[in-house]
């Protein structure tokens, strides 16, 4: 008998997926002509297991987004040291698309407009790449339709060009739609809460929570504010400052940040 609607092509005996970041150093080429690379990440250590949710919180310029984009393989960033492994596989050796197919998903803070490519075409091409085969058309249409309904996305969006003319909230919902459809092993959410009003934040958070409830995804929730943590409860909270994790704790650490802010992590030391 054929197995019906397996959400992904993970073999059932696969162990819990684990993303291991060890002593990661990342530099970026300075945008002005002052020359020379600037080190942004200065030795990041972090392990994210499937089923866990880690919140990474930190002030602006602390390197949170650099961590997100480096894990996804953005060419702007140069890895100068350390390692990133997903289930023992060297992520840093993989191209951007290989990382995605290996199960790393980055929900971007500023999703990019892709003129000429419709959302429906994009989603199907992406799902085909990630799943290794084209989803059956009939079940796929239903799957997308239902996922869009859950995120209160107008069905007309399927025919619009990717992110073109989308509002900030629409772009974020579209990112979470992809998260739900692509079912990664590791989801990195880069400031998904920024620019959202309360309703949109709730809808987006519910989407993330649906994916988390499957227990199959490890979530790295990058945020500046504690607001989203009211909807998405993290298991671990890390404070990011000056290119590394300055302190780690449980959910109570977020409460402390809510009250005290980032000041104690920012002062006394080189500027990031």
């Amino acid at each position: 008998m054929r197995q019906c609607s397996s959400p992904s092509h993970r073999s059932p005996e696969a162990p819990m997926a684990t993303l291991e970041i060890n002593d990661l150093h990342v530099s970026v080429e300075a945008e002005d002509s002052t020359g020379g690379p600037t080190e942004i990440l200065r030795g990041v250590d972090l392990t994210v297991k499937q089923g866990e949710t880690h919140a990474i919180m930190g002030p602006n310029g602390s390197g949170k987004s650099t961590l997100a984009y480096s894990l996804a393989g953005h060419p702007k960033y140069t890895i100068t040291g350390g390692s990133v492994k997903l289930d023992g596989e060297d992520v840093l050796e993989m191209s951007v698309d290989e990382r995605a197919r290996a199960g790393v998903f980055l929900a971007m803070q500023y999703p990019v407009e892709v003129p000429g490519v419709s959302v429906s075409n994009f989603l199907r091409t992406s799902a085909t790449a990630i799943r290794g085969e084209a989803p059956k058309l009939r079940t796929w249409v239903k799957e997308v339709k239902e996922a869009m309904e859950r995120l209160s996305i107008d069905p007309k969006f399927a025919e619009r060009n990717v992110n073109e003319g989308f509002s900030g909230g629409e772009k974020k919902r579209h990112e979470i739609l992809q998260l739900e459809l692509l079912k990664p092993k590791i989801a990195i959410l880069d400031e998904t809460d920024s620019g959202l009003d309360v309703d949109a934040l709730r809808i987006v958070s519910e989407g993330v929570n649906r994916v988390r409830e499957s227990g199959e995804v490890g979530t790295l929730l990058i945020t500046h504010y504690t607001r989203i943590l009211r909807y998405i409860k993290p298991d671990h909270v890390h404070v990011f400052a000056k290119g590394r994790i300055a302190e780690s704790g449980g959910p109570e650490l977020a409460d402390k940040l809510e009250e005290e802010g980032y000041e104690q992590y920012v002062k006394g030391g080189a500027t990031a």
Binding site: M108, P111, V114, G116, N121, L182
Partner: peptide, 25 residues
Amino acid sequence: DEQLFYLMARGISEQEARRLVVRGF
């Protein structure tokens, strides 16, 4: 490059990404 990165970050190969964009165009 940012469009290419976005599509590739969804598992789509570089060649397929170009194809998508040009075909759509």
